[in-house]
Design a protein around this nucleic acid. Structure first.
Length: 481
RNA sequence: GCCUCAUUAGCUCAGUUGGUUAGAGCGGCGGACUGUUAAUCCGUAGGUCCAAGGUUCAAGUCCUUGAUGAGGCGCCA
């Protein structure tokens, strides 16, 4: 007999037909009622055992976490908590689960404890919900770009260019670390390494994506990205997934529209397809908020917050306008900022971004036209700015509770301007010939951005630590599993 | 990398000014009950108080160093 998934069963009517289900025991109450979960949905199927007609040794083995199969009639439930249930005719245990040794328990366990049990945490309601939503968001992103006529470009994970300047890199090598070949000068001789030169894990697929966009028109990447930064925060990982669209013949406004539409599209998709999982996470947050003082509780529930974002337009303003708002803000005047806003040109700190998003505008904010000095070399220099106050066509999308979720820009398409900026920022132009070639041959205005996938999941799930929205997090000092 | 806080039973946590034999809830185990919904009721076992040093008549409690975890900051997505 073919097994039926619980997600499908819960959508059907209790017809009295015989079905076979397989899953894991989430609860066994009263020697009769098994709450069975097979991962297809957050919801359990109630499986009713006739304990007087069942071998006591078999009953004894129905423990929290055990894998079982149950065949029986699907009937209307006599109890109140559920519409339908399965009346067992035949029960089979596939895998026992010894409760004395099993780390998970049928009760609340902290996220920190479950992080140490990351190989088992999928089995909890919370992480089941998180990873089903993560899947749905990944699917929605591909669907969005496909509908928009984008080509999914697989940019390399191993790169030999270390000129991108996006962060510290992980070295990829096959040289013997104890005894590497040396040059005459005593340095490690990477010309003898696997690739004939030093290689690293990618910190961004953007530069390669630009190459694709200059022929395919609209491309996006969606893959793992690596940063060897010693970052210890709730929003950074050493290995994370990034989505990087790149569009030819697009300017910064097109870019902002694309990012905003994409975010609204994928959040709407989650609201349409993941409501059971979102409700579980929403309940979790409501429980958690109860232990907080009144003034720190959020005004909106998780789903209200998501709906709010899908329905509101993001506030767009320039860096210069943001500085004015911050300079005249109450916390700045009262000296509440740890880093007071003084002169134009300073980079904004987390506290400033949070003030703009969470206090001033109370919705997602897009900041544009940052000072050229604090942004990357490939961003397009704005025309007609005062000397010393040059800005670039950059944009950052800031989300409440997360901070920067998207960073993007219109790219510098003018060969001469790009070369002089690279020279000023000490980026070796010879090594980057392939990138510069796009500007030498058929260059055009183009723009793109990077979206941190895990940061998006943080926002949609309401989780607060990025290590809880990726299956097996990598961060300083940790590469378990 | 910097700052702050934490580490006590399987889990979540109490443990007063340094003072006798370190407690609770949940979970586990044994039993009762049998239409339960975090089931309920009765009983029961379970501890290298993170580690190493130190102060003291006496340390879970104070000090030093280290490890691990959490939160914040920086770097960013």
């Amino acid at each position: 007999m073919q097994r039926t998934k619980i997600a499908d069963l819960l959508r059907t009517e209790p017809t009295g037909t015989t079905v076979l289900v397989k899953g894991w025991v989430r609860a066994f109450r009263n020697n009769q009622f098994i709450a069975l979960n097979d991962g297809s949905t957050a919801n359990n199927l109630q499986v009713v055992v006739d304990f007087e007609q069942t071998n006591p040794e078999l009953i004894q083995r129905i423990k929290f976490g055990a894998a079982i199969g149950a065949r029986g009639e699907l009937v209307e439930s006599q109890g109140k908590g559920q519409r339908i249930e399965l009346k067992v005719e035949h029960l089979e245990i596939y895998g026992d689960c010894n409760p004395e040794e099993y780390p998970l328990q049928p009760k609340k366990q902290t996220l920190e404890f479950l992080r140490e049990q990351a190989h088992l945490r999928f089995r909890t309601n919370t992480f089941g919900a998180v990873f089903r939503i993560r899947h749905a968001l990944a699917f929605a992103i591909h669907r969005f770009f496909n509908e928009q006529g984008f080509v999914y470009l697989h940019t390399p994970i191993i790169t030999a260019s270390d000129a991108e300047g996006a962060g510290e890199m992980f070295r990829v090598t096959t040289l013997d670390p104890a005894n590497p070949p040396k040059t005459e000068g005593g340095a490690v001789d990477f010309s003898q390494d696997f690739f004939g030169k030093a290689a690293n894990l990618t910190v961004s697929g953007q530069l390669e994506a630009e190459l694709g966009a200059m022929a395919l028109g609209s491309v996006y990447t969606f893959g793992p990205t690596f940063r060897a930064e010693n970052s210890n925060t709730t929003r950074h990982l050493a290995e994370f997934w990034m989505i990087e669209p790149e569009v030819a013949f697009a300017d910064l406004n097109d870019n902002m529209d694309l990012a905003e539409n994409m975010l609204r599209y994928v959040i709407s998709y989650a609201l349409e397809h993941c409501m059971d999982d979102l409700k579980i996470l929403e309940e979790r947050l409501i429980e958690e908020e109860k232990s907080k003082p009144q003034d720190q509780r959020s005004e909106m529930t998780l789903t209200e917050k998501l709906r709010f974002v899908t329905e509101s337009h993001f506030e767009r303003l320039t860096y210069t306008e943001a500085i004015d708002i911050l300079r005249n803000s109450n916390p700045n005047k009262k000296g509440k900022f740890q880093y007071p806003i003084e002169a134009w040109g300073a980079d904004l700190q987390s506290e400033h971004e949070r003030y703009l998003v969470e206090k001033h505008f109370k919705k997602p904010v897009i900041l544009t036209d940052y000072p050229a000095a604090i942004k990357a070399f490939y961003m397009r220099l704005n025309d007609g700015t005062e000397p010393g106050k040059e800005t670039v066509r950059a944009m950052d999308i800031l989300f409440p509770g997360i901070g920067e979720i998207v960073g993007g820009s219109q790219r510098e398409e003018r060969y001469d301007v790009l070369v002089s900026k690279m020279e000023a920022m000490h980026i070796p132009t010879e090594e980057m010939y392939w990138y510069l070639d796009t500007r030498r041959f058929g260059s055009c205005p183009h723009a793109g951005f990077g979206l941190g996938f895990e940061r998006l999941i943080l926002f949609v799930t309401g989780m607060t630590n990025i290590r809880d929205v990726i299956a097996f997090p990598r961060y300083p000092g940790s590469a378990e599993f």
